[in-house]
Design a protein around this nucleic acid. Structure first.
Lengths: 201, 201
DNA sequence: TAAATACTAGAATAATGTTCTAATTGGTTA
DNA sequence: TAACCAATTAGAACATTATTCTAGTATTTA
């Protein structure tokens, strides 16, 4: 096998193993030595590739966010109406969390403290993602289907309840999975951003 | 000064100092020795009172949740209509986060890994809090003012967007504080749980 | 083939959370 | 008041564990 392949295989093996430990007991309580043993990796290699323990967590996080973002866009962008787009996004989100509960748990835990470089990378990803979302939204706001709101509010309004419900479910405090209640969450999200509701008092 | 007072003063000094460090760099990266120095506390005392570093974090967390819960109930319970109750809760939440951003940041970070005993304590608090909320809700659901939903869904629907927005603001990604957008969040929360909206398709 | 580069290895080190024993203090009881 | 006891304080010693460092090995490139 070529070195490139060998290396990237080692890296993903480490990340995979690390995710299991991180989501189980958190970053602080997982020992580097456990990751090394489970991934069959030497100290030197690990620090060569990831810098330090946080570096592993950052890599796993960035990877997870990238996967989530691209799949969400794939669910949203093809939709032609405001209502179907919003509901498809929320539904996708519920299914993703239910499906990939380990990764979701890690991403939602917000345990990672990012280095400056990781912050920059995430910020850039976030900006690009936000722009795609925004571009999809604009026509629906212009047409009057969606409320006109400050730019930073659509995501919290639409995803907030789902993410909060997911956190509760992941921590074992709700028995019904997000997938099970997706339709309720989707409908509620739609109600909160659709236009032509009752006028404010 | 009596020993009791001296002790409780030391404990709250430690917790205060610890919160500053925790919210700044996270639990893992704050050194016990820094807390000791800033609080003027010896190793022995600290471990006598808190058991270990996580114990400090747990104490700060439980304290914060208690404060938040009781104040939220004080904002909600006196309201007589569904609409004013929901909106008052959301508004309170926004103001609390804006006001106590350090504590809010710590509570929302979900960085703490609780010991079994802390889990029990939190679970009990949560149960009592949830029950009070639930008791307030029941009549409004019965009267048809609020949607009838699974028990665990009201909190995510009502608070989710606010908490999510707060996280974004606390991490510096939105310039307008939750307090500034409270009315939007309050209105959206109301729209998502009020009854007699459009029928589901 | 030679040189450079990327990677691996693991012993040694350093940082830091926690334990332990001894001393002290404040409150309680005889 | 004096003696005693429990709660608390102190900080040196310890243990754990992340990280560094030096040396060596493989792979690519010129």
């Amino acid at each position: 096998m070529s070195r490139k392949n060998q290396t990237s295989e080692l890296k993903s093996r480490v990340m995979e193993v690390a995710l299991v430990h991180f989501s189980e007991v958190g970053i602080e309580r997982t020992n580097v030595s456990d990751i090394l043993a489970d991934a069959g990796c030497s100290v030197g290699s690990l620090y060569h590739h990831f810098g330090n323990k946080e570096g592993i967590a950052e890599a796993v996080f960035v990877d997870g966010v990238n996967q989530f973002n691209s799949r969400l866009l794939a669910a949203l962008l093809p939709r032609r109406t405001a209502s179907t787009g919003i509901k498809a996004s929320v539904t996708f989100c519920c299914e993703w969390v239910t499906d990939q509960s380990e990764l979701a748990s890690f991403l939602l835990s917000r345990e990672v403290r990012f280095s400056d470089s990781a912050k920059l990378e995430l910020r850039a990803m976030d900006r690009a993602f936000g722009q795609s979302i925004y571009d999809w939204f604009v026509p629906h706001v212009k047409s009057g289907a969606l409320l006109e709101l400050p730019k930073g509010m659509y995501v919290p309004l639409i995803c907030g309840p789902t993410l909060e419900y997911s956190r509760l479910w992941l921590s074992g405090r709700n028995s019904r999975s997000p997938g099970d209640v997706a339709s309720i969450l989707a409908e509620a999200a739609w109600q909160s951003v659709k236009s032509d509701g009752e006028a404010k008092p």
